[in-house]
Amino acid sequence: MKIDKQLVRKIALLARLEIPEDKIETMQAQLQEILSYFEMLSELDTSEVPPTVFQHTSSSVFREDCVRESYPQHIPLEQAPESHLEYFRTPRVVEEESP
């Protein structure tokens, strides 16, 4: 697996991270080295081996779907970087209509 700068930029975009241009090369080299190390896994034939997803639960765990007490709105909102009335506030998401 060859990692080029274009792929580093693509992964950063997916991960919502901004890698400064002068750091791209270091990231590329480090990811390349780590992925090359991972190549040893291809020595193993795992065609008949099931994956381990979780340790003890092989199926989903369900609980009764019932109403429970939760925090009053002001408690989570106190942690918000910015809020307005009972809302989390963000920059505008939709475009303004042109007049």
Binding site: M1, L7, V8, I11, A12, L14, A15, L17, I19, M27, Q30, L31, I34, L35, F38, L41, S42, L44, T46, V49, P50, P51, T52, V53
Partner: peptide, 27 residues
């Protein structure tokens, strides 16, 4: 670095070769 690595391992086209393979090796 780890977010980048993990995002790559889960991304379309690489999932089977990395994440699924690793889960099988875990077994």
């Amino acid at each position: 670095r780890r977010i980048m690595l993990g995002t790559f391992a889960l991304s379309s086209g690489y999932y089977d070769a990395y994440y699924l393979k690793a889960q099988k090796v875990r077994t």
